[in-house]
């Protein structure tokens, strides 16, 4: 049973220079205890999607569609009910651990605040106990509860952020580029922490990243986004071994491989479309080497092939 289900989600930003279609008709399910990767290049709408689930987008964002958490549409909740879901049922960690903790609050007070918000009656020793456990579970000494954020390194701060977000045992953890701002060694450590958590806690993770390697290591299923569209979704090995969408294929080919010397680095020519004036048909059409006439005219429908989803005219009937 899907713990989180996103149905026909559209997100638009109203800006002075026009409407930006950041997310267009995206649907997918997150199963219980599953880790789902969302990949795509900068500006493809993956972070917008992650932030929208918590309804934390700026005022100028317009969301339509459905975001169902255990069957409840989050987009229809009033602000107060939504607030109570944040941090308790759905938690989020962010890209830059250096700035995600309040610099003038002790780590302890971050935890206490979280606990008080969701359970005003919690006793102090209980709060310390849960906070210590959460910290220990991500490899941080519980003595460090008394420290301020600036007394931690970047990697340690991200651990603290993770501890904070899992302390109330949320059903879903959204990790928005959790390792992007960290060096590779620390990246690996943080990935290990997240992996351990997945094994021990009953929790689904949505991992938003542009790093195909991290997704391969962490996720069970991957959603590939391009220009606000979900172009492909599938089980990780299937998708990596047999990418259906041309974009996925080229994205995977562009990963440098040190085993193959003598080869130029592959890349996808061109750049993503302007989301204020997206192309009429398929968004990937201008960069796609397999483009057909219809791609230019009509946006492809999302098709289900086995347990995979793909949005491309190469599959299925053009006359549907």
């Amino acid at each position: 049973m899907a713990v989180l289900s996103i149905k026909n989600l559209f997100i638009e930003y109203q800006t002075k220079s026009g409407t930006v279609k950041a997310v267009e008709d995206v649907s997918f399910d997150v199963e219980e205890n599953e880790s789902l990767g969302i990949v795509g290049e900068s500006g493809c709408g993956k972070s917008t999607l992650g932030t929208a689930i918590l309804r934390l987008l700026p005022q100028n964002a317009k969301i339509t569609g459905k975001i169902l958490l255990d069957g409840v549409n989050l987009l229809e909740l009033d602000n107060e009910s939504m607030r109570k879901i944040r941090g308790k049922d759905i938690a989020m960690i962010f890209q830059d651990p250096m700035t995600s903790l309040n610099p003038i609050m002790r780590v302890r007070d971050h935890f206490f605040e979280l606990f008080k918000v969701h359970n005003p009656d919690m006793k102090k020793n209980e709060m310390i106990k849960i906070a210590s456990e959460a910290l220990e579970s991500v490899g941080v000494d519980s003595k460090r509860l008394d420290n301020y954020p600036f007394e931690f390194s970047g990697g340690m701060r991200q651990r603290v952020m993770i501890a904070l977000s899992i302390a109330l045992k949320p059903k879903v953890l959204i990790a928005d580029e959790p390792t992007t701002a960290l060096d590779v060694v620390v990246q690996e450590q943080i990935m290990q922490v997240l992996k351990n958590l997945m094994k021990t806690k009953n929790m689904s993770i949505i991992l938003i990243t542009h790093d195909m390697g991290i997704v391969a290591e962490m996720a069970e299923r991957v959603a590939v986004m391009y220009a606000g569209n979900l172009v492909e979704l599938g089980e990780i090995h299937e998708l990596y071994n047999n990418p259906l969408h041309p974009y996925t294929r080229m994205l995977l080919e562009s990963i440098p491989n040190i085993k193959l010397d003598d080869m130029d680095l592959k890349f996808i020519p061109g750049s993503p479309p302007d989301l204020k004036n997206p192309p009429k048909g398929c968004k990937y059409y201008p960069r796609c080497p397999f483009a057909k006439d219809i791609c230019k005219e009509k946006d492809p429908k999302t098709k289900k092939i086995g347990n995979r989803i793909v949005k491309c005219w190469l599959y299925g009937d053009e006359n549907e």
Binding site: L56, R83, K84, R86, T99, S100, E113, L114, V117, L164
Partner: peptide, 17 residues
């Protein structure tokens, strides 16, 4: 505009706080 504000909201902290 800083991230710890969004992070605080993401933990369900009240707007006034």
């Amino acid at each position: 505009s800083q991230q710890f504000i969004t992070a605080a909201r993401a933990r369900g902290v009240k707007e006034k706080t």
